[in-house]
């Protein structure tokens, strides 16, 4: 029990992270409006929001349009439920053509906005600013525990907690394998070879899990099960390299020769993999965050709520991966003991 504490820690962390992820709601946000162009005069449209509390905040709901030049205050006509609000704007006659952002503010949800929501369609003339709206007070930011609401990602942001730790765990296990292969070439001890093989086998399972969770995610956000992206190609190459490693092992019969050949391939492959996964994507366009100019999760997307779940999930999955690896190792050693009386 005392020396197995880390196994329980791993289980607890993964359970905590998975359950919290599934229970945590997404922050409120605005999805869309039913009109994207407004003519001069009195105009009405419906705002569709997500996870908001329009119904209970009916009287405090503040909706306005804002661009660099103007602020237009809307009059809330009807709130049919928590996520639908019908709003009326009086668009002045003389106003330049602008794209305006839509803002929704209420005490429960804080300030939400949808960039470039509507274009205000009118020809030349100077802007005339309605003063009414800017002076009305807006409520404070609301600090709620929720995952960030991001366009096109929406609820699938929760997949981050499952998808990314798979790759961390895989890298951890392949790292073990690399070190064990180095040790084997150095000392020629059979136990290092067994460890190298078993960690690759467990790592490969995590690689497959990472590929599947990623594929499902890609289908939702990028529209296809597989897209051309250096990160994805690298992941596929990783799978091919380690699957080939296992095939190579099974095609050499003599044990010491197999161990040596496999160790040489493993070291060579790992170095090429580092080039493929760490160095090349830095120079190529990528859809993944943090690569080729797209911002990393850590810069602003990984907010505090996400962080408190993400890091425990990574640590938990690594511990579980390592646990499975030690179990496989015990099993292999027992099998060898029975078969060869070692």
């Amino acid at each position: 029990m005392a020396r197995n504490w880390w196994k329980f820690l791993g289980l607890a962390l993964v359970l905590y992270a998975s359950i919290t992820t599934l229970l945590t709601p997404l922050d409120p946000g605005i999805l869309t409006t039913d009109r994207s162009q407004l003519e001069p005069g009195v105009q009405e449209f419906t705002v569709l929001a997500f996870n908001t509390h329009f119904e209970s905040e009916k009287d405090n709901l503040l909706i306005f349009l804002k661009s660099e030049e103007i602020t237009l205050c809307g009059e809330v006509v009807e709130v049919s439920d928590d996520v639908h609000a019908r709003v009326r704007f009086d668009i002045p006659e003389r106003m330049p053509l602008v794209l305006a952002d839509l803002y929704v503010n209420n005490p429960s949800d804080g300030t939400l906005y949808l960039p470039n929501a509507v274009s205000l369609n009118n020809m030349n003339a100077e802007a005339s600013l309605p003063e009414s709206c800017a002076q009305r007070p807006t409520s404070e930011e609301v600090e709620a525990f929720g995952f960030p609401f991001l366009p096109t990602i929406f609820e699938t942001i929760k997949n981050l907690i499952f998808h990314v730790p798979m790759w961390f765990t895989m890298f951890f296990l392949m790292g073990i394998s690399f070190v064990q292969s180095l040790l084997f070439l150095n000392k020629s001890a059979m136990k290092n070879d067994i460890r190298a093989e078993q960690s690759v086998m467990v790592g490969l399972v995590f690689c497959i899990l990472g590929l599947t969770t990623g594929s499902v995610w890609a289908r939702f956000t990028w529209g296809a099960w597989w897209v051309n992206d250096p990160q994805l190609n690298g992941a596929m190459a990783t799978f091919l390299i380690y699957a080939a490693y296992l095939v190579l092992r099974r095609s050499v019969n003599e044990e010491s020769k197999r161990a040596r050949v496999a160790a040489v391939y493993n070291i060579f492959a790992f170095v090429m993999l580092v080039v493929l996964l760490m160095i090349l994507p830095k120079f190529t366009e990528s859809l993944h965050p943090g690569k080729g100019g797209t911002p990393a999760f850590s810069s602003y997307d990984l907010d505090s709520a996400l962080r408190t779940v993400f890091y425990p999930a990574v640590l938990g999955w690594i511990l579980i991966g390592y646990w499975i690896y030690t179990m496989r190792l015990r099993l292999t050693n027992l099998t060898r003991k029975v078969l060869y009386n070692e």
């Binding site: 091919l240 190579l248 095609s251 050499v252 391939y265 060579f268 492959a269 493929l276």
Partner: peptide
């Protein structure tokens, strides 16, 4: 490496393609 296994050319392709990416 491939020559150490029985099936040289097949193994060569299997091991070589991902490495050469």
């Amino acid at each position: 490496i491939a020559v150490k296994s029985g099936n040289n050319m097949g193994m060569m392709a299997l091991l070589g393609f991902p490495i050469i990416l």
